[in-house]
């Protein structure tokens, strides 16, 4: 109980010192030793680790093994080992190469826009005022409405006589067949995805903003900093860990973009919206080829992990 009673005061006192450095002993490359605390640390991670090991890691390993086989779930004989053939086939498959490019472009164009708008919205709804809960909810709604249902609305908005062309016509711009045009379809899908992802990004950044002790703002204000400076020197460093999470999460999920493509364009026109995960889905569930679907998944996995680590490095690195 002692700890509970003292915590707020300690938190306030300790916060200014800890926030920027993010604790050097943990951030650097420490030689960790087994201490009483670290053994407890291991124990704390065990329930989650065991669960993830059984229900996530094992299926992933199963999939990895399948990637070296030819396997249809319908077959009675089970997986048939074929070595690296699934991977070598991918190397020479222009459709797969194209899908990787499409996926990359998709991530790169959705991610920054989503994060920037979400951060702006999070800042707007971070202050308490009457009805703030309603605004936060309104901005979160796209994340929770059923994608298949709302995609019918988007399909209609994007259609030739849909809302978006009406808006364009209002401004005297020529109308477009958004989802039928090779140059526009991926952008159209991206717009829907940004719309859908804004809410979750905003909520996370909001939680990040909440973790910034207000005393820091007070301190910078006493030092005579203006709003922009306090944003730059307090807000951004304060939400950096959450920003890292948001960016990594967006990369992981966007790179697996599938559902929005499936409902809007079915990968077309001319393969311009065929993402890797779209190919994986068709390979697995349309053609029953789980071996090559798994191989694609692990190539995608390598890209996601590499790209996420790079961006985490980049975001954390600037701190030093």
């Amino acid at each position: 109980m002692t700890a509970t009673a003292t915590s707020p005061g300690v938190a306030a006192a300790a916060a200014p010192g800890t926030i920027q450095g993010a604790r050097p002993p943990r951030a650097g490359k420490p030689k960790r030793r087994w201490t009483r605390t670290s053994i407890w640390g291991l124990l704390f991670t065990l329930p989650a680790a065991l669960y993830v090991l059984i229900f996530h890691v094992i299926p992933v390993i199963y999939g990895f093994v399948l990637s070296f086989t030819k396997y249809s779930p319908l077959s009675r004989s089970g997986p048939e080992p074929i070595g690296l053939k699934n991977y070598t086939t991918l190397l020479s498959d222009p459709d797969f190469g194209n899908a990787l490019l499409v996926t990359g472009r998709y991530v790169l164009q959705v991610l920054p826009i989503t994060v920037i708008i979400a951060l702006a919205l999070a800042l707007l709804v971070n202050r308490p005022f009457r009805g703030v809960g309603l605004f936060r909810s309104a901005l979160y709604i796209p994340h929770i409405v059923s994608l298949t249902a709302v995609s019918m609305i988007w399909l209609w908005m994007y259609s030739h006589n849909g809302l978006i062309n009406d808006v364009f016509a209002f401004f005297g711009l020529p109308d477009q067949s958004w989802l039928l045009n090779k140059g526009a379809a991926l952008n159209a899908a991206s717009a829907m995805r940004i719309w859908k992802a804004l809410g979750s990004n905003m909520v996370l950044l909001l939680a990040g903003l909440q973790s910034i002790p207000k005393e820091l703002y007070e301190a910078t204000r006493v030092d005579g900093a203006n709003r922009w400076q306090s944003f730059l020197y307090v807000t951004i460093p304060g939400i950096r860990p959450m920003l890292v999470y948001v960016v990594a999460m967006d990369i992981i999920y966007l790179a697996q973009g599938f559902a929005e493509i499936f409902v809007l364009t079915q990968g077309g026109p001319l393969g311009s919206t065929t993402t890797v995960n779209y190919l994986i889905y068709t390979q697995a569930f349309q053609y029953n080829q789980f071996g090559s679907a798994s191989a694609m998944a692990f190539v995608l996995f390598a890209f996601i992990v590499g790209f996420s680590l790079l961006s985490i490095r980049g975001l954390m690195g600037r701190q030093k």
Binding site: S38, A48, P73
Partner: peptide
């Protein structure tokens, strides 16, 4: 625990657990 009580190998374990999110469901469903 990963943040406040690191132990030998905790970083690797952390990345190992989180990395499972980067595999599409199509592969792990069956």
């Amino acid at each position: 625990a990963f943040a406040m009580m690191p132990f030998p190998g905790s970083t690797a374990m952390f990345f190992g657990l989180v990395a499972t999110s980067a595999i599409p469901v199509s592969v792990t469903l069956i």
